[in-house]
C-alpha cells in the first residue's frame, strides 16, 4: 500500500507544471524515504531530478518500493482539477496498474477522486557524479526567468560567465547582442532578493535557451534558484520545493568544435 497526503497540495501542482513541458512520461519511484523521479528529455540534453521527502508529507506510507510510470500530460490534467488550497492524497495498491488522486477542499465539504492508469516504463537511471562546482550562484528565481526570456530574443544560446565581480549572461544573434550583468548584492532587506556567488575559479559555459526557458517553468516553486557550474560539465539549476525537497535540472553545455 502506498499513500501520501499533502495538505499544501499546490506544491504538487507546481512540480507538475515544472516538468510537463520537458517530459511526457516518467516513473515516480516510491520508497519509505519519499518519492523520487529522474528522467531525461527525448534528446538526452537535459535531465530532471525531483525529490519529495517522506517527512515533508502530512501522511506518508509506503509498505514496499514501487515505481509508478505515469503519462505526465495526463497527470498534469488531473492535478489541474485540484484547487490551489486543496489537500492532495496519492494512493496506490501494491502491484496495482492504477493510481488514485484524491482532492479535498480545506473544509472537507468537497472531495474528488481521479483514477489514472499506470504505465510500464523501461527507464534507465543515470549515475550523477558528486561534483564540487567551481561556481555556485544563487539569485531570485523571477530574475533568472526574466533574464533567460529577454536574452532568448537574441539567439539560441546564452553564455553564462561567472567571475569574482559577478555573473554575466550574454546572447548574440541577427538583431544584435545582449549582456546582463548581476553583481553580488551588498545588502538586502529580504534574503530571497539576494544574489550570492561562491566561486573557486571563473567559469564560462554556453547553454541552449530552449531548455533554460523550460526550466524556468519551476519559478513558481521557490523564491530563489541556484545555478551550479564547472568547466565542461552540465549546469545544475535547482529550485527548492518548500522544505520537502527539490526539482533539479541538469543541462549539457554547448561545446566548441
Amino acid at each position: 500500500m502506498f499513500e501520501a497526503r499533502l495538505v499544501q497540495g499546490n506544491l504538487l501542482k507546481k512540480v507538475l507544471e515544472s516538468l510537463k513541458d520537458l517530459l511526457t512520461e516518467a516513473s515516480w519511484d516510491c520508497a519509505d524515504t519519499g518519492i523520487q523521479l529522474q528522467a531525461m528529455d527525448n534528446s538526452h540534453v537535459s535531465l530532471v531530478s525531483v525529490q519529495l521527502r517522506a517527512d515533508g508529507f502530512d501522511k506518508f506510507r509506503c509498505d514496499r518500493q514501487l515505481s509508478m510510470g505515469m503519462n505526465l500530460t495526463s497527470m498534469s490534467k488531473i492535478l489541474r482539477c485540484a484547487a490551489n488550497d486543496d489537500i492532495i492524497t496519492i494512493k496506490a495498491q501494491d502491484q496495482a496498474d492504477n493510481v488514485t488522486f484524491v482532492f479535498e477542499s480545506p473544509n472537507q465539504e468537497k472531495v474528488a477522486d481521479y483514477e489514472m492508469k499506470l504505465m510500464n516504463l523501461d527507464q534507465e537511471h543515470l549515475g550523477i557524479p558528486e561534483t564540487d562546482y567551481a561556481a555556485v550562484i544563487k539569485l531570485p528565481a523571477a530574475e533568472f526567468q526574466r533574464i533567460i526570456k529577454d536574452l532568448s530574443q537574441f539567439g539560441e544560446s546564452v553564455v553564462i560567465s561567472c567571475t569574482k565581480e559577478g555573473v554575466k549572461f550574454s546572447a548574440a544573434g541577427d538583431i544584435g547582442v545582449g549582456n546582463i550583468k548581476l553583481a553580488q548584492t551588498a545588502s538586502v532587506d529580504k534574503e530571497e532578493e539576494a544574489v550570492t556567488i561562491e566561486m573557486q575559479e571563473p567559469v564560462t559555459l554556453t547553454f541552449a535557451c530552449r531548455y533554460l526557458n523550460m526550466f524556468t517553468k519551476a519559478t513558481c516553486l521557490a523564491p530563489q534558484v541556484t545555478l551550479s557550474m564547472s568547466p565542461e560539465v552540465p549546469l545544475v539549476v535547482e529550485y527548492k520545493i518548500g522544505d520537502m525537497g527539490h526539482v533539479r535540472y541538469y543541462l549539457a553545455p554547448k561545446i566548441e568544435d
Binding site: 534507465e124 541538469y250 549539457a252 561545446i255
Partner: peptide, 14 residues
Amino acid sequence: MSRQATLDTFFAVR
C-alpha cells in the same frame, strides 16, 4: 561553431 553535447557523455547509466 558550437555543438550541443548530450548528458550521456557525462553521466553513466547505473
